[in-house]
Design a protein around this nucleic acid. Structure first.
Length: 335
DNA sequence: TCTATTTGACCTAT
DNA sequence: ATAGGTCAAATAGA
């Protein structure tokens, strides 16, 4: 059996080119939102936005669109397309200080779930940082996190956190893979509302507070509102979402997006308000995930598996099981 | 002593 | 060749 790290590319399965394109489109969308905010924001914020920043945003949008569209139109398909996997000669005996077997070194192809821009560093999930890298053309390093429960539960969810290039007070967080770990304290519940259930088919709220018997999480006030955010228009436009997220807003958000791929709105009651959805996942990956966790966000661990990891926070988890038709092999994890 | 983070090396895709 | 993602030894903190 393949090890968890090996999966994801599923041997001869086709490359995940659509996700690459999606990724680009999400970036484009994020930048479009930023542009929109700059242009529609208060006069002072407009003034604050330098011409250079605007140019950078526009350049980014254009380049992303070019790469995506070209990759889609090219005969080869996606960026990963043409050659298939290359094998690297590993016959050489390195004898270095620490050499590792080539297995498990494969770059992950866990499906992109979504991207959020937020000031919040907490997302109700437990993450462990496993790397940091300076990214070219970006002034800020990118931090790599994986689910704390990867070792014990094989959860393959990962996220990448990077300080926003355009707003240092915000973080751009990309989520990959699904949380397959199970935390009894964070059983998701379906939001009840006035609207017909059908309208909530894609609206799920996570909140440990909903499960009284297991609510050890101090972050009870947190809520993750899962909503569909299909539309190409910037969800909720964020003009008013920059203020504490209101119920109306969430509702709006849900309705606005009631037929689109999954996205998430982070709600952080009483704390930092601004979180914007800048990404959405294809319906095939309609799964919840944590949001905006950050470097050592406060919180209390509730897992026996890591008693001392108080630097992490526990919260909702989104193990929803795979939808029929999902490609389980995408995760390569078999609990 | 144990666990999480840091950081340089390693590996893969482009 | 280069960039990005991951591993794992070294280090720090509780």
């Amino acid at each position: 059996m393949a090890s968890p790290g090996d999966v994801g590319d599923g041997g001869s399965s086709p490359p995940a080119a659509p996700y690459e394109v999606l990724d680009d489109l999400l970036v484009v969308r994020e930048r479009a939102v930023m542009l929109q905010n700059m242009l529609q924001g208060t006069p002072s914020s407009c003034a604050a936005a330098s011409t250079r920043q605007l140019n950078q945003l526009i350049d980014g949008v254009v380049s992303r669109l070019q790469s995506s569209t070209l990759s889609m139109m090219s005969p080869g398909g996606g960026r990963r397309g043409s050659g298939g996997r290359r094998t690297k000669s590993t016959g050489v005996d390195e004898g270095g200080p620490h050499r590792r077997s080539s297995s498990g070194r494969r770059r992950s192809k866990r499906p992109f779930v979504r991207m959020v821009t937020t000031k919040e560093l907490e997302d109700g999930k437990q993450w462990r940082k496993y790397g940091q890298k300076h990214i070219q053309d970006s002034p800020n390093p990118r931090s790599y996190y994986r689910c704390t429960h990867k070792p014990d539960q094989g959860c393959m969810a990962t996220k990448q956190v990077q300080t926003s290039e355009f707003n240092p007070s915000e973080f751009v967080i990309r989520y990959y893979g699904e949380h397959t770990c199970r935390d009894p304290s964070t059983i998701p519940f379906i939001v009840q509302g006035e609207a017909p259930m059908a309208d909530y088919a894609n609206l799920i709220s996570f909140g440990s507070g909903a499960v009284a018997s297991t609510s050890k999480d101090p972050l009870h006030s947190r809520r993750l509102l899962m909503a569909e955010a299909v539309d190409p228009t910037p969800s909720c436009s964020f003009a008013h979402c920059r203020s504490p997220l209101s119920t109306e807003c969430a509702s709006e958000e849900a309705q606005l997006s009631s037929s689109l791929p999954l996205a998430a709105v982070v709600r952080s009651a009483g704390t930092t308000p601004s979180t914007s959805i800048v990404g959405s996942a294809p319906a095939d990956y309609r799964r919840p995930a944590g949001v905006a966790g950050g470097d050592m966000a406060g919180g209390m661990g509730s897992f026996p598996s890591s008693p001392s990891s108080l630097g992490f926070m526990t919260g909702s988890l989104g193990s929803f099981g795979n939808l029929p038709g999902d490609d389980d092999d995408m995760f390569g994890f078999d609990p």
